[in-house]
């Protein structure tokens, strides 16, 4: 009697995880079709795709219920979760530096003009400059104000 309940619960959990994983994969595909931009498309596909395949591997592990199958499912999930961000980063970087057009209504591109494409270095941001030059370059307006008020 109890084993019936256990097998029914396992079957229910397997069905639930299969359906959720398939829906996440559909979400990834729809995001890939509908998003306007390479970076937004990657935002949809890499995360939802990795989660969907991971959830389906959970369903596989629950369905078989053996140690070997569970180990392989965990290995696949871990591998996808390790490699998917790396591949996304590499492709996004290549797409950005080969001049893939961005969305027309994008607000700002922080990296634009701050990256040297020849030797692949960033311009140093202000907080890495020596303290004296940062103060003299940033604070003249405030200094003149206080100088005028003090006498």
């Amino acid at each position: 009697m109890t084993t019936d309940y256990v097998t029914f619960g396992l079957e229910l959990a397997t069905a639930f995880f299969m359906l959720v994983g398939a829906l996440f994969m559909l979400l990834a595909g729809l995001g890939a079709l509908r998003m306007p931009d390479l970076l937004m498309r990657m935002h949809a596909t890499t995360k939802a795709g990795a989660l969907g395949s991971g959830v389906i591997m959970v369903a596989v592990a629950l369905h078989f219920g053996e140690a070997g199958v569970t180990t392989r499912a965990v290995a696949i999930t871990l591998f996808v979760m390790l490699t998917s961000p790396v591949a996304a980063h590499v492709i996004a970087r290549a797409g950005y530096f080969t001049g893939t057009p961005m969305w027309s209504r994008i607000v700002r591109d922080e990296l634009k003009g701050k990256y040297d494409r020849d030797n692949h270095t960033l311009d140093s941001p202000p907080r890495y400059k020596p303290k004296a030059t940062a103060e003299t370059s940033e604070a003249p307006a405030a200094n003149t104000d206080t100088d005028k008020k003090e006498p």
Binding site: G29, L38, M42, G52, A87, I91, A94, T100
Partner: peptide
């Protein structure tokens, strides 16, 4: 790059 991303998504699928 769009096509490369879609190929990777097809592999995940």
């Amino acid at each position: 790059p769009d096509r490369v991303v879609m190929l990777e998504l097809m592999a995940l699928l």
